[in-house]
Each structure stands twice: as C-alpha cells, then as structure tokens.
Nucleic acid binder design. Structure first.
Length: 783
RNA sequence: AGGCGCGUAGCUCAGGGGUAGAGCACUAGCUCGACACGCUAGGGGUCGGCGGUUCGAAACCGCCCGCGCCUACCA
C-alpha cells in the first residue's frame, strides 16, 4: 500500500459534503434495540420543529456528539435519540404572524383549519433544523426521529394526563395566573421573565367615607388597577391608621366604597403604609383578598383592555388607561405626588409582552409530591448533576415549587382530554374520547378547548420517545438514559420536570448524569437575540471556517461554570489547527511510500528514545482525553489534543522523523514510518470526536492495518480497528500496541535520554525554553 | 434580599500551593523538500484590592471593590 497524496490545503466544504451521507447510509449511528454491548443513551433536547439552528444548539449538540462518538468507539451500543418539539406558543406565534401578513387571523380560519395550517408549516420547515444538525455532524439515530405531537408521543401525553388526573395530581382552579395579553394564554410562573425597570410610585388620595376632608394616601406602581380595588390595607399595628380599620374609603373615579382592612402583609415602612388591594390583578392582593373575603373585580379583558367594570375607561388599553387615570386624578386633586421607583416587571418569554396577573380557571399539576422524589434522586446520587453547583439551584427550586399551570389557551398542542358535561357539570377525563358523560350519561358534553403546556410533553421525552407506555425493548435497554446534555436556562422548564415525570411513571431517574453547559453569548458577553442584532449564525461560521473548526472551538470554550463569549479569532485559530492536522497527515502520507503496516514484524522495530517518547506522550494524551471526557471537561480534552498534535507530534516528532526518513538507514526508516503511522492513526481517532469530517477524510487515505500487526510466530491481537470509527483506546482498555511496548500507564521506565524528553516537555509547558533546547535534544535523540 | 459565578498579557479565555499559559493582535527574521491557516526568535502580565494560612499563594481562607446571571410577593 502506498501513501496517497492529500491536497495542499484543507478545504472543509468538499470534505464535509461527502461524509455525512455515507455515515448515515452505512448505519454507523444506528442503535440496536438490544445488544450484547453495553448501552449508552442520550436523548436530544428537542429543538423547536420550525426553528433554525442557533449557537445554543450548536454547542449543545456538539457536546452530545462528542460523547456519542466517544462511547460508540469504546464499543457501546449507543442510542442518540433525536427529535423535535412542537413548541406550542412559539410555533403558533410564527404561523399567526404569517396569517397577519395575509391580513387574516386564526379566528377567521377556525381551529381546525388553523391547526392544519400549522402542520403544513411544520411540513415545509420542519426538516430544516434536522439538516442543520447533520451539517454539524450530529450522529443521531435518525431512523428513530420523534416529534412531540406524533401519534406515539401523543398517546404518552394522554396516558400521563389521565393517570395524574386519576391520582388526584391534576386539578382545576380559579385563581390568578400570569396572562399574556398578546398570546392570549396563561403562562406558568417560569414562563415569565422578570426585568428591572424604572417606574413610578403614584400616591393617590382615597377619601375616608363619613369624614369629609380626611384622606388615606395609597402608593401604587399600577394606578390603572385601582378600577378593581376592593379594599385598602394597613398594618394591624400601625398607629397612624388604627382607627381606620373597618371603616370605608371612597374609591376615586369609580366612586365605589371599599373597606379598610388590617393585614400583616403590609410593610409599614414602604410608601405611605397603606396599600390598595386589587385581588384580581395582583398576586399578593389575591392572598389578602382570600384572607378578608374580598371581591375579585376583574377590570381587563384577555387583551389587557379595560372592560365594563372599568366604567368610563372601558375600551382603553391598560397603559392608556393608566395615563388617563393619572391625569384624571390630578385634575380632581387626588394625586398627591409621584416618585421615581424601580420595579420589576414580568414579560412573556415568547413575545416579551408585559404579563398581567389575571383571574381565570386553569388546570394545574400538584407538583409537591413529584418534586419530593425528584429531589431524593439527586440527593442520593442516582442522578448526578455536573457541574455540582447546579444542584443547589435545582434543590432550591424544587423546595419552593408551586403548582404547575399546564393549560394554555392556544390551539397548537395536545388538547386536554377532558370533557365538560352541560347537563350535570361534571368532568370526564379518559383515554378514549367519550361519547357521553361518565357521571350522568348525558351526551351533551364538549371537550376542553385548552391545550397542554409544551413542557408537559417535553417532560416525558426520555421515555415517550422509547415507546412508552408500551414496554419496549428500547426502554429496557436505554432507560434510564446515560446522560442529558443541556443548558442551564431550561433546568426548571425541562430537566426538573423530566425528573419528576420519570420518577413517577418509570419509577427511576430519566438520566444518570445531567451535564449543564453554559450559554453562548456574543463577544461582548451579551445574550444573543434577534432584537439586539448580535446573533452569530452557526451556519455562517461553518461556511467560513468549516464544521470541524467550529466544533473544536465550541469544545475548547466549553469550560464548566462559565458562559461562552464567542470570539471569532478563536475559531480562526482552530481552523488553522485543522489545517495543521491536515498537513501533518499529508507529510506522513508522503513518507509512507512502500510502507504496509500489515507486513511489519514487531521485532523489526528499532525504537529510539524519540520514538518511545512520542508513543508515551500519545499514550498520556489518550489517558487525558479519556479522563477529562469522563468528567465532561471538554475544554481540557480539546487542549490536550491541540497541545499534543501541534507542540509534540508536529513540532518535535515530525522534525525528528525527517532525520531518519531521509537518512538512508532502511530499518530505521521502517520504524519511523511505523511510529508515524501509528501515532497519526491513533491521533485521528481521538480527534475524530471533535472534528469528525477531516479525520474521516484523512483516515480514508491512510494505510490500514486491517488484519493486524504481525508479531513473529503469531498474529498479534492488533487488528484493532476493523472499521473506521469503531474503536478508541482508553485507560480501561489500553492500546495493545502500547502494551507491547510496555509503555502503558507509566510501566515504561525512563531511561536517561527519555528523561531528557520528559524534562524538556515540562520546561516547554512552563516557559518558552523549548526551542533553545531543540537542537540539543535532536542531537541526543539521533545519536 | 438571598444564591451562584466571574475579575489572569492589548482582546477572547484556559490553568491552578512551587520558576506566569493558549489563540488572535504586535516586533524581528525566515520562499530550508507537511503547513505563510506556517517556522524561528522576541516584546508584553506585581494573575481585581487588602489581610491571613504556608518555607512558598495567582491558586487555599476571610473581608472589600467591580461585573454578570438565577431565584424572591415589598405595593
């Protein structure tokens, strides 16, 4: 076998185009439902089906791909389960915007036609993100691709809903929820993003009934809600107002008499010590209202526009109403003063509209019992969260968890399988669509129009994708999954809920490890967002620098506990690294003329200290990669490979090798060829995790040791690598070749010259002394 | 208000009780047979501040300053 030549420079796009299809075609990524091999499984955090690949996906999936390729090469039966999420509100919003552009709205279309339209949009755009993941090199088992609204998953969702309802863990209640006046739906607590904003504190005089000329002054940040006041509250021990408790004040503008109540909730120090109580539009006031049995007066409609209860302000948007009310109060002399005041406002996580606390009847999951088990699983180590500091966040949230509002007033999603009976008013919840009321038998029933929170179906992902509720081979083999790789931003949305559902329905954790990675920010540290215009499109980066360089950059940046500020120069740096690898291979191939690893006899090798040194360093690098990846220290793996490749293999060994390759000693040349070939071949396999395309390309032109490395008298068990990316040496299973050389795990005793190498290497790492010793060491090696 | 994290070379970041590291940028040489996306030689940092532990601290501990994020019902 003779060395073939590679092109002079590395051209990523040619190479990348070629390989993915072949990998897929050859089924390299296919997982067996069951196998003799040990299982290793990861479920992908499903991207929004109609979405496009962003930096977060790129990082997330690169990290997963590294693990999957690594485990696959270690001989595991690897399942990387792919799929997409229907992303209820987000997707519905996109389609609604399309309709808006056509000057239509969903209500004109009607529910069925609208949903049809969304499916159509999914069909058009749904493949995009999958194609982009493939471009990134993600080695998912695509034949298993799932969608949160496909038939199987919908069945899982319904099963879970029905069971939780039957267990008494799902209930309906009429209370305040966070309402998005633009999306027209309820949101869960964590779907609200809080932001600190400058606001005002308006001081308003409420006349005391029966005591002309006496006022109480309330301070509020939201004067428009006064339309719905049903009391004012003071602290029970506040001497200033003690005599007012139980009396009435006149609500200005509305001219409704409301009571003065005493409640501990009031902070005497804040504002005037008098709080207006609006039970229908403030979470605290709601509680006060419960304690004092106050009316809940809803003054807004579902769009945040003042309704009939707001009398003369009816029809005004809440913010317009605020302006008008403040002006009116001022004109009648009831506005005492206005202070600057910082306050936090909640915005819808999908459209950023300021959410409104809104009184409505919604479905809830009672989560405390579920959270209990989910916490225990982490406490006793059945699930390990990496980095560990996230455990605190996880526990903190679980301990203070509030019931989960799961109903959404949108159309795109899993419709809640509950039917209301018009006859007896009872609710029927069942696996099969009922024809009549389970309570009274009346056929005058109608299905709940709400759908479930998107995260409800996501919560089931680790087992629903494997065929649950059926007891499948996949579940037996791959549940619990080995690892979940995800960003901390969805720790509560997704990870915590998967834990709860997994424990409840599978009786076991959904994953052994959770690796929480950072967010990718722009170079200035800002979160990337379309509105800020600072989004770096991963596909643009790939176009410019190639997938391998990009992946390597992400891995090199993925230090634990720190966000990633993506600096383009670094990507260019690793693009150069790709080129370095390419050229090291090119050099090796150019000098492998007449070399056939299979014909080599072990006893023919005449290893110098230089040879032993590089093999030892290679060995150490393997161990480092193995160890660091076990702990998800991707950046350290990447750096170890970078250092070895460039500073040792290229800077040193290739230079040393030239002496023997061009020197004329045939035996030495043969040995050097072997060491070069072996080192490169092993290195490629290690690098493959990070840069699959370029390594595959090089591998294909590298001589193969298909049947083994010959040792006199018998064939050695050195037929390591029957097919390309199926095997990787690691510390548990050392490379037999290195074993033969007895340099595995430090069993190699350093001779004086190799000690020089070791010392030299340490020097190099500490300082820049390497080069000054370069010539001396070369001489030492050659002699 | 609590919790977490971060402050190291001009920039983006690793590292972590024992002579300060990488990429990019910078300076001076290199068209010598893998690579100018390169090679060689350099310049540049009292590792946020102050104390403590130690033979020794950028690293460990305490406090402080600055920044970021997450949670929280102060209207």
């Amino acid at each position: 076998m003779s060395g073939r030549e590679l092109a002079k420079g590395y051209e990523p796009h040619e190479v990348e185009k070629r390989w993915y299809a072949e990998w897929e075609e050859k089924g390299y990524f296919r997982a067996a439902a069951s196998s003799e091999k040990k299982p290793y499984s990861i479920v992908i955090p499903p991207p929004n089906v109609t979405g496009a690949l962003h930096m977060g996906h790129a990082l997330n999936n690169t990290l997963q791909d590294i693990l999957c390729r690594w485990k696959r090469m270690q001989g595991y039966n690897v399942l990387w389960m792919p799929g997409t999420d229907h992303a209820g509100i987000a997707t519905q919003n996109v389609v609604e915007r399309q309709l808006f552009a056509e000057k239509k709205d969903r209500h004109e279309l009607g529910r069925e036609a609208f949903i049809e339209r969304v499916w159509q949009w999914k069909a058009e755009s749904g493949g995009q993100i999958i194609g982009q993941l493939k471009r990134l090199g993600a080695s998912c088992d695509w034949e298993r691709e799932r969608f949160t609204m496909d038939e199987g998953l919908s069945k899982a969702v319904r099963t879970v809903f029905v069971k939780l309802y039957e267990d008494g863990l799902i209930y309906r209640d009429n209370r305040l929820i966070n309402w998005c006046p633009r999306c027209h739906t309820a949101l869960s607590d964590i779907e609200v993003e809080h932001e600190e904003k400058k606001g005002h504190l308006w001081h308003i005089r409420y006349p005391v009934v029966g005591e002309p000329g006496r006022f109480v002054v309330v301070a509020t940040t939201r004067p428009e809600t006064m339309l719905g006041d049903s009391a004012v509250a003071v602290h029970p021990e506040d001497e200033r107002y003690g005599d007012l408790i139980g009396k009435k004040v006149l609500l200005p503008l509305v001219n409704r008499e409301i009571i003065v109540v005493a409640d501990d909730y009031v902070d005497r120090e804040f504002g005037t010590g008098v709080v207006k109580i609006t039970p229908a539009h403030d979470f605290n006031d709601f509680e006060v209202g419960v304690r004092h049995d106050l009316d809940r007066i809803n003054v807004f409609d579902e769009s945040g526009v003042v309704n009939a209860a707001g009398r003369q302000y009816e029809g005004l948007d809440r913010f317009a109403a605020r302006v008008r009310i403040v002006a009116d109060l001022e004109s009648i002399g009831l506005l005492e003063k206005v202070d600057e005041h910082g306050m936090s406002t909640g915005g819808c996580y999908r459209c950023k509209t300021v959410v409104e606390p809104y009184l409505s009847l919604q479905w809830y999951v009672k989560v405390a019992p579920l959270a209990e088990k989910a916490m225990e699983a982490v406490k006793d180590g059945r699930t390990r969260i990496v980095p560990k500091q996230w455990e605190n966040t996880y526990f903190d949230w679980m301990e203070n968890i509030r019931d989960w509002c799961i109903s959404r007033q949108i159309w795109w999603g899993h419709r809640i399988p509950a039917w209301f009976c018009d006859h007896c008013g009872e609710i029927t919840v069942s696996m099969e669509d009922p024809a009549d009321c389970a309570q009274c038998g009346s056929d005058e029933i109608r299905q709940e129009t709400d759908v479930l929170d998107t995260w409800f179906s996501s919560a089931l992902w680790p087992f629903s994708t494997m065929g649950w509720p059926d007891q499948t081979e996949e579940l037996r083999s791959f549940y619990p999954t080995s690892c979940l790789v995800t960003g901390f931003d969805i720790l509560f949305f997704w990870v915590a809920r998967m834990m709860m559902m997994g424990m409840h329905f599978m009786g076991d954790v959904p994953f052994r490890d959770v690796y929480i990675h950072a967010l990718v920010r722009d170079a200035a540290g800002q979160k990337m967002s379309k509105s800020k215009g600072n989004v770096i499109d991963p596909l643009t980066v790939i176009d410019q620098y190639g997938t391998d360089a990009f992946r390597f950059t992400l891995a090199a940046f993925a230090a634990q506990g720190r966000d990633i500020k993506l600096a383009e120069e670094r990507i260019a740096g690793y693009r150069n690294f790709c080129n370095k690898v390419w050229n090291a291979a090119r050099f090796t191939l150019m000098n492998l003329e007449g070399f056939d690893p299979e014909s080599m006899e072990f006893d023919e090798l005449q290893l110098t200290e230089g040879d032993r040194w590089i093999l030892h360093r290679l060995n150490e690098t393997i161990k480092t990669v193995d160890e660091t990846l076990t702990d998800y220290r991707y950046n350290e793996s990447a750096m170890a490979l970078y250092q070895f490749t460039w500073s040792e293999f290229c800077d040193w060994y290739l230079e040393l090798a030239k002496q023997d390759l061009y020197g004329g000693d045939a035996e030495r040349k043969k040995t050097v060829q072997y060491v070069l070939w072996h080192s490169l071949e092993t290195l490629l396999r290690l690098l493959h995790l990070f840069m699959p395309f370029i390594t595959e390309e090089i591998w294909q032109v590298l001589p193969k040791a298909g049947s083994g490395f010959g040792v006199r008298g018998r064939k050695a068990k050195h037929h390591l690598y029957p097919s390309c990316w199926r095997s990787i040496p690691n510390s548990a299973n050392p490379d037999p070749f290195l074993k033969l050389l007895q340099i595995w795990s430090g069993s190699w005793r350093l001779s004086p010259v190799s000690a020089i190498f070791e010392e030299r290497w340490r020097c190099h790492r500490r300082s820049r002394l390497l080069s000054s010793f370069h010539a001396a060491v070369m001489r030492a090696c050659i002699s």
